[in-house]
């Protein structure tokens, strides 16, 4: 009996050590490559800034002054919003509404396309990780729309699975009178697929597609893309979807090739 207990404890201990070792070594290669990637991104940006400054020096100083004014005005708006947020929270408390977590967005630089040589998934690597409070599952977006979701975190970096990857599924609604719901996932490079759309509902082309907030992963109201057209009525495996459900094609709101800075929801 005693030998059995000792054996079980030994197995658990070995398993725990193995898990710790795997977790440690998993982050190590990414952390080792991080300084090289960060240096490349920093220098590329500096060189681009110098080059731009060289040829557009006057324009740049004018734009700089304009941006400073814009920042100052946004600071004013932010102050007003803080007051409104406080008032909103107080009223929600008075009305006994559920407390809502405010969205806090952390800005991060895109280091690389990520994905190593295998490139098995559509992803990007960012220069913020667990040390900056980023956790797995965090939502990543830019002002234009949804970028994806954090799937792996190391102390200094995080890997983001793009919304164009077939394995990432997002609950969405099509903006319009009926607010039709569906599940959006990656298709080909340029087009996303929206499945499980209600049959019979009219969807106007060029309608905006937004996150619905269902499922609790992605907050509601983030733009994802524009509804282009109905699909061929077949699902991912090529089976006919039948008369109850249908699918549509959606053009992403974000140009993923031009991403330089993104925002991570904390």
């Amino acid at each position: 009996m005693k030998a059995t207990t000792t054996g079980t404890l030994a197995v658990i201990a070995v398993a725990m050590v193995a898990v710790l070792l795997v977790a440690f070594f998993r982050a190590t290669p990414v952390e080792l490559a991080y300084p090289v990637e960060q240096a490349k991104v920093t220098w590329a940006r500096r060189l681009a800034a110098r080059w731009t400054g060289l040829w557009h020096g006057v324009d740049a100083s004018v734009e700089n002054a304009r941006l400073r004014r814009e920042i100052a005005s946004l600071e004013m708006v932010r102050g007003e919003l803080a007051g409104l947020e406080e008032e909103n929270a107080r009223l929600r408390r008075d009305l006994r509404f559920t407390e809502r977590e405010p969205n806090r967005w952390e800005c991060a630089e895109v280091l690389s396309e990520g994905g190593g040589a295998a490139g098995a998934r559509r992803s990007i690597r960012l220069n913020k990780g667990s040390l900056a409070g980023i956790r797995e599952g965090a939502v990543v977006a830019v002002p234009e729309g949804l970028v994806g979701q954090v799937v792996a975190v190391t102390p200094h970096t995080s890997e983001v699975l793009l919304v164009t990857d077939p394995s990432l599924q997002v609950a969405c609604t099509v903006e319009g009178s009926e607010r039709i719901r569906g599940i959006l996932s990656g298709g080909t490079d340029d087009v996303l697929l929206m499945r499980h759309l209600k049959a019979g509902a009219e969807i106007a082309p060029e309608s905006r597609v937004l996150t619905s907030g269902l499922g609790g992963v992605f907050p509601a109201g983030i733009p994802v893309g524009t509804f282009i057209s109905e699909g061929n009525g077949r699902d991912a495996a090529g089976r006919h979807a039948g008369g109850l459900e249908r699918e549509g094609k959606v053009r992403p709101a974000v140009d993923f090739t031009l991403l330089e800075d993104v925002f991570i929801r904390r």
Partner: peptide, 24 residues
């Protein structure tokens, strides 16, 4: 080799998902 090979794989553009097999 591991550090710079890994970084090169990460930074290289991927065509059809295929990157540079520096580590292999």
């Amino acid at each position: 080799t591991l550090v710079f090979g890994g970084a090169a794989e990460e930074l290289a553009p991927k065509t059809l998902g295929v990157g540079l097999p520096v580590l292999l």
